[in-house]
Amino acid sequence: MKHSLIHIPYLPGCPIHFMINDYNSEEFQQHLGLEIIWLLQGKLKVMVGQNDYYLHENDLLLINHFESHQVVPQVLDAHFIQLHIDSLFIYKYNHDFYSLLYDLKSFKNSEDNQNPYDVIRILFSQLITRKYKHNTEIHSDVLRLLGYLTSRFSKRLSLTEPENPVSNKDSNIVQQMLNRVEQDFKGKLTLNEIALEQHYNPSYLSDQFRKNVGVTFKAYLEEIRIRYSLFLLQHQEASISNIALASGFSDEKSDKKQIFVNSLTIT
């Protein structure tokens, strides 16, 4: 089944995208950011790590940042929407994001205790149906949703203070790196280039990025490029080679192969 993006496709600077009935029963996936699944009709099995969750009509489930998961419909007429919120956007407004664990499973509560989840459904619906004219309007509504999610459904990964807490200086450095990726991922961007410009040791920047974001700089950069290539594959008539180049990948066969393999997840 081929999914379709609605209203807001993924583009640099846009914090969200939607997918309808998007699943691949053959492999697990990971995403940079938060993903909320809303089942509108039918039955759905979602495997998250070692846990299996069975969703029924109107159920909500949140997938955490970089959490391995697999979506498998249990009936032919299953209809569901996935909302993905980019980690880069979340981190800009909440530097604690990578130390938080979100727990949103509406099916764990009775029908009489759905009020907090109804708020999520309302905010979710507004993002789908509202006709946005400016990015600032999108950002405002997404921040409302994130604010409620964080206040109502999140907790810190550790109740104790870390031995080596991240300083404001380190946090600002990582934010600059994230901004640079967003602006220049289409070019031949490297960690060494950023280190030279910022007058830092590449190893130091690499350690700080991994500590704050949870993945390596290279993995994050490749994920952004892959997601942008998927957008181009859906919306432009171009060869895999040209899409790879437009997304910031070199013309090496290994990079082309990676783009092609990842593009299979949208068919």
Rank of each mutant, 00 (worst) to 15 (best):
residue 4 S to L: 06
residue 6 I to M: 10
residue 26 E to N: 11
residue 30 Q to D: 13
residue 33 G to P: 02
residue 37 I to L: 09
residue 41 Q to F: 15
residue 44 L to F: 06
residue 45 K to N: 10
residue 54 Y to Q: 03
residue 56 H to Q: 06
residue 59 D to L: 03
residue 62 L to K: 00
residue 64 N to M: 03
residue 70 Q to A: 07
residue 74 Q to C: 13
residue 74 Q to R: 06
residue 74 Q to K: 14
residue 75 V to E: 13
residue 89 F to V: 02
residue 92 K to F: 05
residue 95 H to E: 08
residue 98 Y to D: 09
residue 104 L to M: 11
residue 113 N to R: 14
residue 116 P to R: 13
residue 122 I to D: 15
residue 124 F to Y: 12
residue 130 R to A: 04
residue 136 T to S: 11
residue 140 S to C: 05
residue 151 S to C: 04
residue 154 S to R: 06
residue 154 S to N: 06
residue 155 K to N: 08
residue 157 L to S: 09
residue 159 L to S: 14
residue 162 P to N: 08
residue 162 P to F: 12
residue 163 E to N: 11
residue 170 D to A: 09
residue 170 D to N: 10
residue 173 I to W: 10
residue 174 V to K: 11
residue 176 Q to M: 11
residue 182 E to I: 00
residue 185 F to Y: 11
residue 187 G to C: 01
residue 190 T to Y: 14
residue 194 I to V: 12
residue 197 E to N: 09
residue 200 Y to S: 05
residue 201 N to K: 09
residue 201 N to P: 02
residue 203 S to T: 03
residue 206 S to P: 07
residue 209 F to Q: 12
residue 218 K to V: 04
residue 222 E to M: 12
residue 223 E to T: 01
residue 227 R to E: 10
residue 237 E to T: 06
residue 242 N to M: 08
residue 245 L to Q: 15
residue 246 A to M: 14
residue 247 S to A: 08
residue 266 I to K: 12
